[in-house]
């Protein structure tokens, strides 16, 4: 068992365990903080997959941006000082149904992953992906890139508009 394999299992465990904590935790603040570790695990997996730029992006945007946003959301909509910092689990029936459906989907997806013969190319050892992403983004996906920038602009303006006090 080499170091790469060890690292993979470490990051996989990190992702899944804290993912489970996010989902099952009763306390919403715990869930939010567990999400941080999950994101971090995913970023590690990215590194193992030679996606250096994406790993950095994951940490900066998810952890530095989205997660902070979510924690702000929790604090603004939940009376933290009060009793009700519960993540609000539903009734027993709902949880049972959700469990059955999720388990079935998990079984299905894993079954599919394991049984399918995926067409694979030999893994090319490559350096940094940043140059390649930059070139592709500004040539082949220039339209999508511009559309995405418009989307972000609109989302910012729209979010500010929706959230402000009437």
């Amino acid at each position: 068992m080499d170091l790469i394999t060890l690292a993979f299992y470490f990051f996989a465990a990190l992702t899944l365990v804290f993912g489970g904590v996010v989902v099952f935790s009763k306390n919403i603040m715990h869930a939010a903080f567990s999400l941080l570790f999950t994101f971090f695990g995913v970023a590690g997996l990215y590194v193992l997959l030679q996606a250096d730029f994406l790993a950095i992006t994951q940490i900066m945007i998810y952890i530095g941006g989205i997660l902070v946003l979510i924690i702000f959301g929790v604090m603004l909509t939940t009376r933290i000082t009060g009793v009700d910092v519960k993540s609000g689990a539903s009734g027993r029936i709902q949880i049972t149904v959700a469990g059955i459906v999720s388990a079935a989907l998990a079984v299905l997806l894993i079954y599919v992953s394991l049984t399918t013969v995926w067409p694979q190319s030999p893994v090319a050892e490559a350096g940094s992906t940043v140059t390649a992403i930059g070139n592709t983004m500004l040539t082949k996906y220039i339209l999508a890139f511009e559309a995405a920038s418009m989307l972000l602009l609109i989302a910012i303006v729209g979010a500010a508009f929706i959230a402000r006090k009437k």
């Binding site: 993912g19 919403i28 979510i70 959301g73 989907l105 997806l109």
Partner: peptide
């Protein structure tokens, strides 16, 4: 697949909107 299933469970089982968002 496992992470996806966890997310799905979170979406379906929780009442709190922010929990759904996290899922």
């Amino acid at each position: 697949a496992l992470l996806f299933t966890l997310g799905l469970f979170g979406i379906v089982s929780r009442k709190h909107s922010i929990m759904v968002l996290m899922g």
